[in-house]
Design a protein around this nucleic acid. Structure first.
Lengths: 200, 200
DNA sequence: GCCTACTTGGCAGCGACTGCCAAGTAGGCG
DNA sequence: CGCCTACTTGGCAGTCGCTGCCAAGTAGGC
């Protein structure tokens, strides 16, 4: 098996197997969720149809929610990195917008994104988890936003948090409206409209 | 037992017993949550210490989350009613603010509110549920807000939703900041500061 | 060819939650 | 007063998400 010199997919066989299994599970899960709904699909069924044991499935993805996961951590990382890279004279809102645009580019395809967000809209428990994940992103972004807002003083933290929470609220509203319109139009146009409605 | 003419507590014995049991459970739950944390407290323990069977507890409160519940439905009702009662020349933000003030008045005591919100802040799963509940309130308020914002047209829905989501985001931020400061100061002052930071 | 390290699957168990069934108790009736 | 009905309660078994543990299999480096 050589020291791995070729420009093959990835390092070891294990890695490749893992990756393949991971994709298989993810695809099976999304398909079943779309077909029968999130709550109506048990993890046992996904495991069986994906050809792995339930135990192994839970080793790959810690929770059922994660099975929907379009790599949320990458989303958070790209978002934070992009916001951080904006030059100092860009105002907070523009910086956050840039980050969202960058993160938005991570979706595999419009169709898949639509499927996922539709599920998100229609399943209360998923919606809750999604919002909670958003909170963690906000925590990561907080220092960046605070710095960019300059003004210090007693309420600086609250003000920065409020701006962040509002941006996320607008993003959520935009995405949900986009789903309501069956993916017609652009999410960022809706986002801009939402922000304008709030700050206008 | 007469036809119940006296200005006693409530109608039948059953009702009174139910109410007493309900309070007992709620108090026990809050106490245990504060003492050992939400995730570390099992429903079985609450049931045992409250002197009811687990089955009965679940008949009173459908989920473990509800055990923290400072009557969320009343919160939603008061909020919606108050917003609806505002005269037509009051703008959206002021109307929402008035609703929040009214709903805020429902807390039994500052101390209990602080306990509950502290739990909310420190427990991810609770936080998620709380946010999700907020979404349902937003759905109830949507028609009221849309009407008050006048402007019709294609994006009216999204804009109204955005305003609502922002107001809730500011409320959440204000409350969490209030908890961070151990209950010093007024939540509504923080709320105003948050809104100003966003709309300024 | 062998030893090591990693991966896998099965099993038992926990906690939240539900349906079902049997027993107890309040309430209205004669 | 006693009785019948309606509501409430508790227990039991079972589902589902999730975890720890242990035994077996397989890739990787020597």
């Amino acid at each position: 098996m050589r020291r791995e010199g070729a420009a093959d997919s990835a390092g070891t066989l294990w890695d490749r197997t893992r990756q393949a299994a991971s994709r298989e599970i993810l695809e099976t899960a999304l398909r079943l969720f779309v077909e029968q709904g999130y709550d109506e699909t048990s993890v046992a069924q996904i495991a069986k149809e994906a050809g792995v044991s339930q135990r192994t499935l839970f080793r790959y993805f810690g929770t059922k929610e994660d099975l929907l996961g379009g790599n949320q951590e990458r989303f958070g990382r790209v978002l934070a990195d992009t916001v951080g890279e904006q030059s100092a004279d860009v105002d907070v809102w523009a910086a956050l917008r840039a980050g969202i645009v960058a993160a938005q580019g991570l979706h595999d395809s419009r169709e898949q994104a639509l499927d996922r967000f539709r599920l998100l809209r229609d399943t209360a428990s998923l919606r809750a988890g999604w919002l909670e994940k958003g909170l963690r992103f906000q925590d990561e972004l907080l220092p960046l936003v605070k710095a960019r807002m300059g003004a210090a003083g007693r309420g600086a933290d609250a003000r920065a948090r409020a701006v962040l929470a509002t941006a996320f609220a607008c993003l959520d509203t935009a995405v949900m409206t986009w789903v309501d319109r069956d993916g017609k139009g652009e999410v960022m146009d809706l986002y801009d409209e939402c922000v304008a409605a709030v700050r206008g």
